[in-house]
């Protein structure tokens, strides 16, 4: 139970450090943790990536199968994203159906991918109104040390980028790599009192009053946003966060693209 409670003592400590421009792990306020990406980790998936953001460890598998399109989008493929917060990743995760935080994570990651038009979904149409490629993105959180929004998003992006569409097995021609049009990158900022910290670690996240995830594309345009927790942001803070997110995203994007 005390996993979720942060002592007054530690709150005071983090805040005191912040007042002199420091974070508990020595990072600058705008510095994300180290990102490592291992592509095509799982051979049973058509695309996969294991991403570590600091010690937060996420494995994403993308599976494609032939299915029916949604009635209102008869010419486009189907995208479905889900997140599993498996119990081994944290003592606070319980087995069972997805809780609201897992659902929110999945929807925010999905939004970033969908709204950025990362994948041209029309290219996943096989026969209009009848057959399309259905893409399942399954995000498996293995180790939780803060900032699942960004870790899951990076994992999903890297996994999608590694997808080879299994057309041959479906008798639909040669296999082909998924055509990627845009590269969304999410950057999450936590607010502790009046301090803004990019890529909050677990301790910072537990103390945060508010949180904002901003997903931008390669032009710096905003594709998805999500504010969380019960604190508030001023409009100035919002602008600062978005500008920082654009900058940090530019640094991280090449890693996801595999360069």
């Amino acid at each position: 139970m005390s996993e979720e409670i942060v002592s007054e003592l530690m709150r005071a400590h983090v805040y005191r450090l912040a007042e002199t421009g420091q974070r508990v792990d020595g990072r600058g306020f705008d510095d994300p943790r180290k990102v490592t990406i291992e592509r095509s980790f799982v051979k049973t998936a058509e695309g996969s990536a294991r991403v570590k953001l600091g010690n937060t460890d996420v494995l994403v598998g993308v599976k494609l199968s032939v299915g029916e399109p949604y009635p209102d989008t008869p010419n486009t493929g189907v995208l479905s994203t889900s997140v599993e917060l498996i119990p081994m990743a944290s003592p606070t995760f319980e087995a069972g159906p997805p809780r609201p935080d897992a659902i929110e994570l999945a929807r925010v990651v999905d939004r970033g991918i969908r709204e950025s038009k990362m994948v041209n979904m029309e290219k996943l149409c096989i026969t209009p109104k009848e057959k399309v490629w259905v893409m399942f993105i399954d995000i498996h959180v293995l180790d939780y040390d803060g900032n699942l929004f960004d870790a899951c998003s990076y994992g999903a992006t890297a996994a999608i980028a590694s997808v080879v569409v299994p057309a041959k097995a479906a008798g639909l021609g040669e296999d082909f790599p998924l055509p990627i049009d845009h590269w969304p990158v999410s950057v999450t900022t936590a607010k502790i009192k009046d301090i803004l910290l990019v890529d909050p670690g677990l301790d910072e996240e537990r103390m945060a009053d508010a949180r904002l995830t901003v997903t931008t594309d390669e032009n710096g345009d905003i594709r998805a946003m999500q504010k969380g927790l019960s604190g508030t942001f001023s409009y100035d803070e919002l602008k600062r966060i978005i500008e920082t997110a654009q900058r940090v995203a530019r640094e991280i994007r090449p890693l996801l693209q595999g360069s």
Partner: peptide
């Protein structure tokens, strides 16, 4: 013990959950 298979661990995707 809780044994679980990730949805992407098998050729035909497995729905999440036990």
């Amino acid at each position: 013990c809780r044994y679980n298979m990730a949805p992407f661990s098998v050729s035909d995707r497995k729905r999440p959950g036990p």
